[in-house]
Design a protein around this nucleic acid. Sequence first.
DNA 1: TCATTAACTGTCG
DNA 2: CGACAGTTAATGA
Length: 232
Amino acid sequence: MECHNCPNHQCLIKKHCRQAPMESFLVKKHSLQCKKTQSFILEGAPVHGLYFVRAGQVKVAKTGRHGKEQIVRFATGGDIVGHRGFGAGEFYQISATALTNTTLCHFSSSTMLHMLHQVPGLTVDMMLFYADELNRSESKVKKFAQMNVREKVIDSLLQLHRKFGQHRGLLNIQLSRKELSDLAGTTEEQVIRTLSTLRKEEQIRTEGKKIGIINVELLNKEISNHQAVHHI
DNA sequence: TCATTAACTGTCG
DNA sequence: CGACAGTTAATGA
């Protein structure tokens, strides 16, 4: 899999692949296929490098001490997975699982470090990426503190809509109710009940696992309204 | 056809 | 709101 004809133009490796020093590193890239539900990073496992998603959908999750899973973020074409591990810690703090059949590009930690030493543009872009990730997780903490279950579910649906979009009125991602609760930070039953109410209110529609948001602006409005109320 | 999994509902603390 | 139990529907070996 050559970087030069990769469709993911926002991928940081692709963006800098024309730099002279990159040639020697790109040959060390490994491509691998992951089938749906397959995990390629296990929480607590020794760090073995950095992944870039070439095609497919990936969920990044973390398990709490009570066995509760929390979905941290999603990754699709061009996104980075496993970036918290290399250099600093010895073990991954997260797990990464393919939600669809997925093609991954892998670099070992040492290759990444050599790359960062020799390609300043890549280093800067990586740093900006880390800063953005930090911002996201900080605002995530704030949300969790003040939102009730209904708001968490709605917020999660809107997040999926922003990241994956909708085709024919249905979200372009399939999650089980359990996974949706892992994302929203609640239980499967609460998600099921909230989805049922939203369906009766004709805010969403469901076709088995598939969920469609009928009026994005309306749900957005409800979130901001409720958040304002909670601030007072 | 039977067994397993997922979606859903009722109820209780 | 979370947890448990129980029902129903879909899936597939």
